[in-house]
Design a protein around this nucleic acid. Sequence first.
RNA 1: GCGCCUAUAGCUCAGCGGACAGAGCAUCGGUCUUCGGAACCGAGGGUCGUGGGUUCGAAUCCCUCUAGGCGCGCCA
Length: 552
Amino acid sequence: MLKQRLIELLTQAAGEAQQMGKLPSIALPEVTIERPQNPEYGDYASSFPLKLARSVGVSPLTIANDIVELTTPGPEIDTITVAPPGFINFTLKSDWLTNQIDSILAAGNAYGNAVLGQGSRVQVEFVSVNPTGPLHVGHGRGAILGSTLGNVLASAGYDVEKEYYINDTGNQVDAFYRSLNARYQQCLNIDAEMPSDGYFGSYMVELAKEIAAEEGDRFLTIPEQEAISQLGQLGLEKMINQIKSDLELLGVSFDVWFSERSLYDNEQYQTAMSLLRQADYIREKEGATWFVSTALGEDKDNVVLRSDGSPTYFASDIAYHYNKFIERKFDRVINIWGADHQGHISRMKAVVGALGVNPERLEVIISQMVTLRRGNELIRISKRSGDIITLREVIDEVGVDACRFFFLSRSADSQMDFDLELAKRESADNPVYYVQYAHARIASILRLAQQRGVNYEDGDVSLLSKEPELILIRKMLLLPEIIEIVANTLEPHHLTYYAQDLATVFHSFYKQCRVISRNEALTKARLKLVEAAKVVLAKTLQLMGMAAPEKM
RNA sequence: GCGCCUAUAGCUCAGCGGACAGAGCAUCGGUCUUCGGAACCGAGGGUCGUGGGUUCGAAUCCCUCUAGGCGCGCCA
């Protein structure tokens, strides 16, 4: 990538300056290259001399001049200039810029891909909602975050596996089973009482009705414990399928659906525990079994086995992470959790460390709360009690692409209001349509060219020299950097801003430069440009999981 | 009490050590005899929550305080 080459260029020049005695022989700070926001400062800039001046005691301007004198720029660089108080600014040659159009067209859908990951295996685990109820908007946020991150990491050269962890055992599942049984009996006119810790949402009634309709009253004829278990498993399976189809609707897919229960069925839980026990991180006290996280700097220990001998969710998580790192040997594991799991991060990292794995290999992204509202009316999204607005209803109301874009456009760190009224009102005037419109517009131009039988394969891109053309190319060349940034920071929201910028620059170009005109040579050149822009736009939309429509 | 997140233009949010702080929406004013006006061009609008500190340089880093959110279960 060009940025990398500029870094090398400056590093080398600084090294030479040292050899010539123009700079003292000290360890040089890392060369950084920025994108100046003001185009007057060129395409790239470095504040390296300013940083260096501190330790060297030489004026930054002098350093900048010395370094620039020693650079031997490649064919892509037009000018390297020094600007006060000590910046080095680079501008790109316009014929190099225009040549990139051919590279983009040649790369096609692979444009922007990187080799950052070098094929290392990264797991992204997300959503992983208890299958005791339907998904709501908050879950949608995590889902979109995860699937987009998966796309970007794959494009950055990682071997990505997306995974949904199914909590199919434990207290909450048990409560779900008993609730379903009660609702089922009620369906069949039996005066059953809902458990106090049960799930009271109306979806449970619907679920029970569905099962009663399909299975009749056969669960009444077997022992109740047996019935609860069979009925529960059936209900759970249905809930999982519903979750699966809701996610599919959102364009979110998984490579693996991982069962929590399987950790106990195949002894991985026992293996993980004995590993920790050997390392002396497991102790018995107060009748329960604890993970001694205080030994690892945590402020308290955590129960893994209750006094009744049943494992906590934390026990499962220990086994699960043992499985991720040691059984399946992922190089990196990324977990996306809701803000309410924040406190779980440090002890999970402690566990990973205790298992002998570098805790840095576990990265947790916390997505902050989403509150759903309709105008001023707050809508509760608690699954436990009462009714909720499901993710599906929200998608039906505002549309998949708008939904994805909306969730993606805010950083995971900041909480957000999802105002249904606003989302619908804005949907006609939504940034996502603005971006998609640019794509459709290009498609329409290319259709016209085809109708007129214009073959532009031999178009000469060096004819492109107008400002709007070059600005568009410059913006297209930013995508690889965006992909790299998102892959490194795990912050996909940058994509939405880039998409809007790219669309803006295209629309502006479109207004100022007629593509298909009487000037045949220019027409061909511009068709190439426009097709390349379509490639970049489509790639950006694809990474975000959104449609790139030919017409709309 | 402790931990994490947030506070930037009227609204929703980017920017997170560098050059005059940006975008969308909203407001106001312009642009249509040609490829899709779901478009384009322009204007106004900000002591970057408060007070300190570090630095040649701070919205960005450190500390104080204020406000809001989420945690601190033998729930997940």
